[in-house]
Design a protein around this nucleic acid. Structure first.
Length: 574
RNA sequence: GGCAGCGUAGCUCAGUGGUAGAGCAGGGGAAUCAUAAUCCCUUGGUCGGGGGUUCAAAUCCCUCCGCUGCUACCA
């Protein structure tokens, strides 16, 4: 038996995520997980996500909201978890990087790296603010740019002249948090991960995956390797995070925490442990993550391109370094799927500027499936993609309402009017049905291949072609004409059409699970236990004559021009 | 500044050496079961400009223009 492990890049806990965040990792991970469950069975698939909760941004956002940081994170974790469920994201666990399980694992990884000699203590100089009683990250120090004189330049880069800066370059520096000039440069000690020692191994590993990963992922990874890996600080002078254990460096880093980027990917494992603990099988995580128990697992990671360096360099170094001399090495990722950006009407989605459409707002407008379909059919796979309201409405109306929704409606209404709401038994499949079966077999094969390759746009095009093939069949079979002269032939067309709805509902379920469920419910057919198949002929004979069904309300209502205009107005698109 | 990616039909995008493709929009036809929803056919592009390699270039190389991202303390 083969098993599949899927992780989505962790959304930062800092507020509601926008559609760009959704389509860049969580949504495709869910679609892929749903497909794999249909193929392998739910027990052989594990899909993991979590909120990424540590780091200075969470601390500062909590201050702004007037909440203790732990409460702040708990609150926004719940919000994100609920929104994910509302989007039908079917993660086996949506965890928290601040969990005790992740704390334990992060410390375990750090101890292994320390023991293996891949961590060292270095002294760095950092800005400390007396007023804020904390060390400031470079970008939280502001002052006058020495190059252009801009008086609100940040310590990492001047936004005015774009030059890269060091905080000590700034004239009249002050804290961006309190505005206080009472700051000083202090020595502080940090743990550094010796990434540079892994260059050759990483290059060989990435090269070996070049054929399977996309150019987006490999080109970013090679870029970092070509520029030369630098050792990376993995601790921070913060309160909120996983504490550095005292048994590393003889307690020299007491009171410091690990950098959010060190503990966040470890939460993939942490969230699996949370899952195992919650279901009362605390050892169940081992067979997904430790070799040789996880030898039959293929591990897929989904992420936006900003995350690729951390998943091709940072986390692999953590894993490889901890694995040296280990009896049960950690599972390394097999396939990385990266996404470009989804832009909003020509500009960037922006959390800080509230530009674009956010997950909670989207669901106020339309059901999740409409968004899921649009986003996946136009996923930013090959290059950055662009969201516009007109394109969105056009896609939803044409694909979901006209092609799919109307297909279901026209068959069930006709069958009810002419065959009393039961699957008719007369007639036998003929030329039209054979043609349909052959067409479906070819389309399903292509659809499956594209899902396997995680080519989601192409998979959506195939799925849509399957819906079109359904309409094509109905048009050719024309039961409304046959019913006048050959009731048995009309019955065959109706029976085939109803079975086709069932097959289409199952095939569509990874992308539009709610609509799929509604179709199957109307047919009074169960949506559990169905397995992925290319056997269209058998599927089209599944529902027996005499079976009773319902005509559901319109599956997808069309978006009206007035709504598009109103939404453009409300969200600021053109 | 450096690095990377992109620039293909009105729009959104496939296509990495062998006679330019899909969906939408536009045009024509068929059908009238259905959410006026469908199905078929079809118009439309000197593949950003220029130069080069090749029997052959959207595809490889150079250059210019435009857009985007990254640049290691953003997460």
């Amino acid at each position: 038996m083969t098993r599949v492990l899927i992780t989505s890049a962790l959304p930062y806990v800092n507020g509601v995520k926008h559609l760009g965040n959704l389509v860049g990792s969580m949504l495709p991970a869910d679609v892929f997980a749903r497909y794999q469950r249909l193929k392998l069975g739910a027990d052989n698939v594990l899909a993991i996500c979590a909120t990424d909760e540590h780091g200075a941004p969470a601390e500062i956002a909590a201050l702004e909201e007037g909440l203790p940081v732990a409460e702040y994170c708990a609150k926004w974790h719940e919000v994100q978890k609920r929104l994910g469920e509302s989007f039908h994201l079917s993660f086996d666990n949506f965890g928290r990087s601040s969990s005790p399980q992740n704390r334990e694992l992060t410390q375990e990884f750090a101890r292994a790296l320390w023991k293996n000699g891949f961590l060292e203590v270095r002294t760095t100089r950092q800005v400390y603010s007396h007023a804020d009683k904390r060390f400031l990250q470079d970008r939280f120090v502001i002052g006058t740019c020495p190059h252009c004189g801009y008086d609100r330049a940040r310590g990492d880069q001047c936004e005015n002249c774009t030059r890269v800066l060091d905080p000590t370059d700034l004239k009249s520096p002050r804290s961006a948090l309190s505005g206080s000039p009472d700051i000083e440069v202090r020595d502080t000690q940090h743990l550094f991960l010796k990434q540079s020692e892994f260059s050759d191994r990483l290059r060989a590993w990435i090269s070996s995956n070049e054929a399977r990963w996309s150019p987006l992922v490999t080109s970013i990874a090679f870029k970092w390797l070509d520029e030369g890996l630098r050792d990376r600080g993995i601790t921070r002078d913060l309160e909120w995070g996983v504490p550095v254990p005292d048994d590393i460096a003889d307690g020299a880093l007491k009171g410091k925490v690990f950098y959010v980027w060190f503990d966040a990917p470890i939460e993939y494992i942490g969230a699996t442990r949370e899952w195992a603990d919650a279901r009362g099988t605390p050892d169940a995580w081992v067979r997904w993550w430790r070799m040789p128990e996880a030898g039959d697992v293929t591990y897929f990671q989904f992420m936006g391109k900003d995350n690729v360096p951390f998943h091709t360099v940072g986390f692999p170094v953590t894993v490889l370094g901890a694995n040296e001399g280990a009896a049960h090495p950690w599972k390394l990722v097999d396939v990385i799927k990266g996404f470009n950006w989804l832009n909003y009407d020509g500009g960037k989605f922006s959390t800080s500027q509230k530009r674009g459409v956010f997950m909670d707002q989207a669901l106020e407008l339309l059901p999740a499936d409409q968004w899921r379909w649009y986003l996946m059919a136009n996923a930013p796979e090959g290059s950055d993609a662009n969201f516009t309201w007109e394109h969105f409405a056009g896609t939803v109306n044409k694909d979901l309402a006209d092609v799919l929704g109307n297909f279901v409606n026209r068959i069930l209404k006709f069958a009810t009017a002419r065959f009393e709401g039961k699957v008719p038994e007369e007639g036998a499949p003929g030329a039209a049905e054979e043609e349909l079966e052959a067409r479906l077999a070819a389309l399903i094969a292509s659809y499956t291949d594209n899902l396997e390759a995680m080519h989601f746009r192409k998979a959506c095009a195939d799925l849509r072609a399957i819906w079109v093939a359904g309409n094509e069949y109905v048009t050719v079979a024309a039961p409304w004409t046959l019913i006048k002269t050959d009731r048995a032939a009309a019955a065959t067309a109706v029976r085939t059409g109803i079975n086709l709805i069932r097959l289409i509902a199952h095939l569509s379920s990874p992308f539009i699970p709610s609509m799929s469920h509604a179709m199957l419910a109307a047919l009074r057919v169960s949506d559990s236990h169905w397995r992925w198949t290319g056997d269209a002929a058998a599927e089209l004979r599944h529902i027996r004559p005499g079976h009773v069904f319902d005509v559901p309300p319109v599956l997808v209502r069309k978006i009206e021009d007035a709504e598009i205009a109103a939404w453009q107005e409300r969200f600021g698109g053109s």
